[in-house]
Lab assay of single mutants.
Amino acid sequence: EAHAAIDTFTKYLDIDEDFATVLVEEGFSTLEELAYVPMKELLEIEGLDEPTVEALRERAKNALATIAQ
C-alpha cells in the first residue's frame, strides 16, 4: 500500500519520491487526505511551510477533480 501511495503522489502531485515517502511515513496514503486534512496537520511535517502546503493541497484537489472526470 505504501508503494502505491508513493506512486500516486509522485504522479499526481508532481513531487519526487523522497517527498512522497515522507508524506506516507507521516501517515498520508490518499490524495483525499492531503486535499482535506486540516492544514495544521501538514504544517507539523518538518520542512513544510504554508506556501508549500497550500500548493500541495491545491494539486491534490486538482488531481481528484481530474480523476473524477
Results as ranks from 00 to 15, higher is better:
residue 62 N to Y: 11
residue 25 E to D: 10
residue 51 P to F: 13
residue 4 A to Q: 13
residue 16 D to E: 08
residue 49 D to C: 04
residue 9 F to N: 00
residue 24 V to K: 04
residue 68 A to G: 10
residue 21 T to Q: 11
residue 9 F to K: 00
residue 53 V to R: 04
residue 42 L to S: 03
residue 34 L to G: 01
residue 12 Y to T: 04
residue 11 K to V: 05
residue 65 A to L: 12
residue 26 E to A: 15
residue 66 T to F: 14
residue 19 F to T: 09
residue 8 T to L: 15
residue 41 E to V: 15
residue 58 E to K: 15
residue 57 R to E: 01
residue 69 Q to M: 06
residue 20 A to K: 01
residue 32 E to S: 07
residue 63 A to Q: 04
residue 59 R to S: 07
residue 55 A to T: 09
residue 58 E to W: 09
residue 1 E to M: 11
residue 19 F to S: 04
residue 61 K to N: 06
residue 1 E to S: 13
residue 33 E to Y: 08
residue 16 D to L: 06
residue 46 E to D: 11
residue 66 T to H: 11
residue 66 T to R: 11
residue 68 A to R: 10
residue 16 D to H: 08
residue 69 Q to F: 03
residue 25 E to T: 14
residue 40 K to F: 10
residue 61 K to H: 07
residue 56 L to S: 00
residue 55 A to S: 08
residue 51 P to A: 14
residue 10 T to L: 11
residue 5 A to I: 15
residue 33 E to N: 06
residue 57 R to N: 03
residue 37 V to D: 05
residue 6 I to W: 03
residue 55 A to Y: 10
residue 6 I to M: 06
residue 46 E to S: 14
residue 55 A to E: 08
residue 14 D to I: 07
residue 18 D to V: 13
residue 9 F to D: 00
residue 16 D to P: 10
residue 40 K to H: 13
residue 36 Y to L: 09
residue 2 A to Q: 14
residue 56 L to H: 00
residue 36 Y to I: 09
residue 51 P to K: 14
residue 16 D to I: 04
residue 64 L to A: 03
residue 49 D to G: 04
residue 25 E to G: 12
residue 54 E to Y: 08
residue 3 H to Y: 10
residue 16 D to K: 07
residue 48 L to H: 02
residue 49 D to I: 04
residue 42 L to F: 07
residue 67 I to V: 07
residue 11 K to N: 06
residue 34 L to H: 00
residue 52 T to N: 05
residue 9 F to Q: 00
residue 29 S to D: 06
residue 32 E to T: 07
residue 57 R to H: 05
residue 12 Y to D: 02
residue 58 E to L: 14
residue 58 E to M: 12
residue 28 F to W: 07
residue 37 V to S: 14
residue 49 D to P: 04
residue 5 A to R: 07
residue 38 P to N: 11
residue 42 L to D: 02
residue 18 D to Q: 12
residue 32 E to P: 03
residue 40 K to C: 07
residue 42 L to W: 06
residue 58 E to S: 08
residue 67 I to Y: 04
residue 21 T to E: 07
residue 32 E to V: 08
residue 53 V to N: 01
residue 28 F to A: 01
residue 16 D to A: 08
residue 38 P to L: 08
residue 61 K to E: 05
residue 34 L to V: 09
residue 66 T to Y: 12
residue 13 L to V: 02
residue 30 T to L: 05
residue 54 E to C: 14
residue 12 Y to G: 02
residue 60 A to M: 02
residue 10 T to F: 04
residue 51 P to Q: 14
residue 10 T to G: 03
residue 65 A to N: 10
residue 60 A to Y: 02
residue 6 I to T: 04
residue 28 F to V: 05
residue 33 E to Q: 14
residue 55 A to V: 10
residue 38 P to I: 06
residue 15 I to F: 02
residue 18 D to A: 14
residue 3 H to K: 15
residue 14 D to S: 11
residue 11 K to P: 00
residue 67 I to F: 06
residue 50 E to M: 13
residue 42 L to C: 03
residue 56 L to F: 03
residue 68 A to F: 06
residue 44 E to C: 08
residue 59 R to H: 05
residue 3 H to L: 14
residue 9 F to S: 00
residue 20 A to F: 02
residue 66 T to V: 13
residue 11 K to S: 05
residue 1 E to I: 11
residue 69 Q to V: 08
residue 4 A to E: 08
residue 54 E to P: 01
residue 56 L to C: 02
residue 61 K to W: 06
residue 19 F to G: 02
residue 15 I to C: 03
residue 32 E to A: 10
residue 52 T to G: 08
residue 16 D to G: 10
residue 5 A to H: 05
residue 47 G to H: 05
residue 37 V to P: 05
residue 60 A to I: 07
residue 8 T to D: 06
residue 60 A to F: 02
residue 45 I to E: 01
residue 10 T to N: 03
residue 23 L to F: 03
residue 41 E to H: 13
residue 48 L to F: 09
residue 37 V to R: 15
residue 22 V to E: 04
residue 69 Q to A: 14
residue 36 Y to H: 11
residue 63 A to F: 04
residue 47 G to E: 04
residue 59 R to A: 09
residue 22 V to H: 10
residue 30 T to R: 08
residue 46 E to T: 15
residue 65 A to C: 08
residue 51 P to Y: 11
residue 38 P to M: 07
residue 24 V to I: 11
residue 58 E to V: 11
residue 50 E to F: 12
residue 64 L to I: 10
residue 27 G to K: 02
residue 21 T to A: 13
residue 8 T to P: 02
residue 47 G to C: 06
residue 64 L to V: 05
residue 14 D to C: 14
residue 31 L to R: 00
residue 61 K to L: 13
residue 1 E to Y: 06
residue 67 I to Q: 07
residue 15 I to V: 09
residue 63 A to G: 05
residue 67 I to T: 05
residue 51 P to H: 12
residue 21 T to W: 15
residue 10 T to M: 15
residue 59 R to D: 03
residue 41 E to I: 14
residue 59 R to Y: 04
residue 32 E to D: 07
residue 7 D to P: 05
residue 16 D to S: 14
residue 50 E to L: 14
residue 29 S to C: 08
residue 26 E to Q: 15
residue 53 V to F: 07
residue 26 E to K: 15
residue 33 E to R: 11
residue 33 E to I: 13
residue 26 E to H: 15
residue 27 G to D: 01
residue 4 A to D: 10
residue 4 A to H: 12
residue 65 A to E: 09
residue 58 E to A: 10
residue 28 F to N: 01
residue 45 I to C: 03
residue 56 L to T: 00
residue 3 H to I: 12
residue 34 L to D: 01
residue 31 L to V: 04
residue 12 Y to K: 02
residue 12 Y to F: 09
residue 18 D to T: 12
residue 9 F to P: 00
residue 35 A to D: 01
residue 9 F to L: 07
residue 19 F to E: 03
residue 65 A to F: 08
residue 38 P to T: 11
residue 35 A to N: 03
residue 64 L to Q: 02
residue 54 E to H: 11
residue 26 E to L: 15
residue 7 D to E: 15
residue 2 A to F: 14
residue 19 F to H: 03
residue 30 T to A: 05
residue 8 T to Q: 07
residue 52 T to L: 10
residue 22 V to Y: 15
residue 35 A to E: 02
residue 58 E to R: 15
residue 22 V to T: 10
residue 42 L to E: 02
residue 11 K to I: 05
residue 29 S to P: 02
residue 34 L to N: 00
residue 39 M to L: 12
residue 55 A to H: 08
residue 4 A to C: 08
residue 17 E to Q: 11
residue 31 L to Q: 00
residue 13 L to T: 02
residue 32 E to H: 09
residue 52 T to A: 11
residue 11 K to A: 06
residue 26 E to D: 05
residue 11 K to W: 11
residue 36 Y to N: 13
